[in-house]
Write a protein that binds this DNA or RNA. Structure first.
Lengths: 240, 240
DNA sequence: TGAATAGTGTCTATGAGACAGTATGTA
DNA sequence: TACATACTGTCTCATAGACACTATTCA
């Protein structure tokens, strides 16, 4: 009997693990995702989610943060929120070899237009509505993954304060409402929205500041509150 | 230049991928999880979630169903619900080697007391409250995983009809209420619960049957409805 | 008949939505 | 002053919770 470096049976199948990133932002009243155009096979030339393989000695979350910075040039401190979405392991999702992909969902306020990140591939910030309406087929199973990320985002705005993570540190109620309107794709009543947000404890905290320069009465400036969940939630209008 | 069987660079790190199962059921008014006692190192003798490695040519979901049947003897048709919870990839979560674990959450009505499943290791159905209160430390990071599964379950009962998946195909409103009370650990008003459930479209559908034999008026029998989400949701009482 | 559970009625408080009205800035 | 946006007041309707009440069974 020989001593093995690993105590796990060597017959156990090992596979590459990737992280894919759903990087969402709100631009011009639209929910958008960052996509890159693939510069290598397979799916050469098609749009895809940014991502890459997890390295030895690197946790999943570390890999996600590393890829995020590499692909967008955005420093972690500028990222509003990141969470794991789920893991995709269908056998044929990568035609080369069986690859497990762990998808992460990130919200970034004021995402800078990517001028080719670490690598020199093409990147763009594309409205979700455009991807859906033009039936743009992303590489791999990324259309599915993106769709799941968008749906989770829409749902999470209902019962968490995560909409604030699409805003800069200081924001007005109007900016926050614009996030809801962009993500949900509906219009909200400004008056009722203002009351709901400011009365839900822990959602937003007032500051002494107000914005200047716009037309109309200056808006008060708020920062994110402490709550992790909204109670009661801010429900979307009934889908019938 | 030689032709490679795989087009993915061989320097890409490959790792074992496991699935772990959070198998929940309601027994004697308590939310319970199925645990197994480990028969091998590491964590020999400690309680752990059932699970195992994903095989070559096997999808994550297939592996979860296979392990579920192997560990519990429960046929897939008897499983009320299964969904992916998340993926855990901390570097040192397995002391032998870096292992990625994809956790699945399953709801099983009338889970039979496991009399040693496929393998001959010890298994038990343990109340969540007991695991938490006795600070039972599960193997690996399974305490965390279980906790996340329980919390997701509690949250999902609010806005989905998944509580029905803890019940047999035909059930009474009282049985459904018992699920909520067990999972949330609170008492609910029978009258208000009855009205809420029966008036939320798509939650439950009435049948022509009624139960016989109990004391008191026979209860009507319902089956699961078609809705995927509850609107409006059935919120837990405010946590203050 | 009484006990027990199923299910309905009803009152109240709270919150959402519609929308009018007031506040406070710029052009 | 006109206008635009911020914010508040108020009315109505729907729903949750408390709990009284009725319905239907078994012992």
């Amino acid at each position: 009997m020989t001593i093995n470096k690993s105590a796990i049976n060597d017959l156990i199948h090992r596979m590459p693990v990737a992280v894919d990133l759903i990087i969402l932002t709100v631009q011009q009243s639209q929910l958008c995702a960052l996509l890159i155009r693939r510069g290598i096979k397979p799916f050469l030339g098609q749009w895809a989610l940014p991502g890459g393989f997890v390295r030895e000695g690197e946790s999943l979350e570390s890999a996600a943060w590393r890829e995020l910075e590499e692909e967008t040039g955005v420093k972690p401190a500028k990222v509003g929120h990141m969470e794991q979405l789920g893991t995709f392991g269908a056998l044929k999702r990568d035609p080369r070899e069986r690859v497990i992909s762990v998808a992460y969902l990130a919200f970034v306020p004021n995402l800078p237009c990517p001028k080719a990140g670490g690598d020199a591939h093409e990147a763009c910030i594309m409205p979700i509505a455009q991807i859906e309406s033009e039936l743009k087929k992303l590489a791999f199973d990324h259309t599915d993954i993106l769709q799941q990320g968008v749906e989770r985002t829409r749902a999470k705005l209902e019962y968490t304060p995560l909409a604030t993570r699409f805003c800069p540190a200081k924001f007005t109620i109007q900016e926050l409402r614009a996030v809801y309107e962009a993500v949900w794709g509906i219009d909200l009543d400004p008056a009722n929205f203002h009351r709901k947000v400011t009365k839900t404890i822990g959602f937003v905290e007032p500051t002494q500041e107000a914005v200047q320069g716009g037309s109309g009465r200056p808006a008060a400036v708020f920062v994110k509150g402490q709550a992790a969940v909204l109670y009661p939630p801010l429900l979307r209008v009934e889908r019938s």
